[in-house]
């Protein structure tokens, strides 16, 4: 049986999932066909929000890592781990959709543009973070090490982005994967913007769910040890 709090969060989750589906549907069916790319461009309605969400997770990791370091409370540490997991999922989605978009549009599965490259490096860093988390004994030592790594990773993301951006602009004209500029159809633009906001909210919901999950797991572990004693 679900208690009141779980029910509330379930309803919020369902609402957000519906919003995501609505946004995709608008993108799939209502937005106009692109003159150059045809139907395949529609993947940006998932790709761009996923990219923003992946980076937003890095920002959340930064904030919660600082909180975990300052207050040493378990709940902040659990939020950090949840953020890294959800961040990894969204970086994976970004990379996958980027590939799917790139292949029919420009004939390549991959390109070293600033955003994709930074997303790839961020995915590797999230994986490293989770690997560190699982390689350390639970306790204040792990909280501190992971919190500090979280700060380092998220502080590095803008630096990585800027360096790759400069590197690419030196070698080839403006990235092909720009959202477009002033010439973008307003419906497309707003659908993408809405998608970014909705997906970020959805990711926050996922992070909170996952954090609750991790907290319960920790509690279960502690209690089961105590039972054995």
């Amino acid at each position: 049986m679900l208690d009141a709090k779980d029910k509330k969060s379930l309803y919020i989750g369902i609402l957000l999932a519906i919003l995501v589906l609505v946004q995709w549907s608008v993108g799939m069916f209502l937005a106009p066909v692109d003159a150059m790319q045809g139907q395949v461009y529609r993947i940006i309605f998932l790709h761009v929000p996923a990219a923003f969400t992946a980076f937003f997770s890095a920002f959340m990791l930064f904030i919660y890592s600082i909180l975990a370091l300052k207050s040493k409370k378990d709940s902040y540490q659990q939020m950090c781990k949840a953020t890294a997991e959800v961040g990894l999922i969204f970086t994976a989605i970004t990379l996958l959709t980027g590939s799917i978009w790139g292949r029919p549009t420009w004939g390549v599965w991959w390109t070293w543009d600033a955003r994709l490259t930074t997303t790839l490096l961020l995915a590797i860093l999230y994986a490293g973070y989770l690997l560190l988390y699982s390689s350390l004994e639970p306790g204040p030592g792990r909280t501190k090490a992971c919190a500090i790594l979280g700060i380092l990773i998220s502080a590095d993301v803008p630096v990585i982005y800027q360096s790759v951006n400069w590197w690419r602009t030196l070698h080839q004209p403006q990235s092909m994967l720009r959202k477009g500029g002033a010439t973008m159809d307003p419906l497309i633009l707003w659908t993408v913007v809405a998608g970014i906001l909705i997906l970020i909210l959805f990711s926050i919901w996922l992070i909170v769910q996952r954090k609750t999950n991790i907290a319960l797991q920790d509690e279960l572990e502690t209690k089961s040890f105590q039972q054995i004693k």
Partner: peptide
């Protein structure tokens, strides 16, 4: 210092080190 006590240090260190130092390599 962060990975000092981690069991998977051998793989973890390069996994973190290379992405984070990409800007330095590029520069």
């Amino acid at each position: 210092a962060i990975t000092m006590k981690a069991q998977s240090r051998q793989i973890l260190y390069p996994l973190l080190y290379f992405p984070m130092t990409a800007p330095v390599l590029l520069s």
